[in-house]
Simulated assay, not measured.
Amino acid sequence: MSLRHITTKNAPAAPVPGLFAQAVRAGPFLWTQGTPGTLPDGTMVEGTIQDRTRQIIKNLEAVLAADDMTLKNVVKATIFIKNFDESFPLVNQVWEELMPEPRPTRTSVGVAQLPAGGTDIEIEFVAYKA
């Protein structure tokens, strides 16, 4: 089995090219990097956590598309959220709005700090395509 990096200009670049990848394909699985609520140019999305969540899903959808996948291929998501008690229901609203049925399994984790400067949410996906 070989590993293959998946990249697209339609999503934020890996924070340190060569050290991180937007996604890695291994066999039928694709793992994305943790993605904050930034535009493809790296600018943080202003506004609400819902706005950043929508942008993250749009960014991850672009990464999936670079490997001929869609949100329907996502089998697992991990969501890291600051201010968990306040933000969790708001993130769920966007999740329900954008993620197709059947929705993937998901782990949501409350965190004190996220590495991407000033973000309050980060999401990563695992997708499957035979």
Rank of each mutant, 00 (worst) to 15 (best):
M69A: 01
E122K: 00
L39Q: 15
P115Y: 13
G34V: 09
F20D: 15
E46K: 15
P40K: 10
V45M: 12
R103W: 06
W31T: 09
G118S: 01
Q93G: 06
G18K: 03
I121W: 00
S87W: 05
A65C: 05
I81L: 15
P102D: 12
Q33P: 02
I123F: 00
P12I: 04
M69D: 03
P12G: 05
A66T: 03
V16N: 13
V63N: 01
L114F: 02
E97N: 07
V126F: 04
A13L: 12
T32K: 08
M44A: 12
L60I: 00
P12H: 04
L114R: 01
A77H: 08
K82Q: 14
S108C: 06
A13P: 08
Y128R: 12
G27Y: 05
Q113H: 13
A21N: 13
E61L: 04
L98C: 13
N83V: 05
I57P: 00
L98S: 11
M44I: 08
L3P: 00
E124H: 11
N83K: 09
M1F: 05
I81Y: 00
E96L: 15
W31E: 13
R106W: 12
P100N: 03
Q93K: 14
R52A: 15
Y128N: 08
E86S: 10
F88R: 11
Q55E: 07
G47T: 07
F80V: 07
V24Q: 14
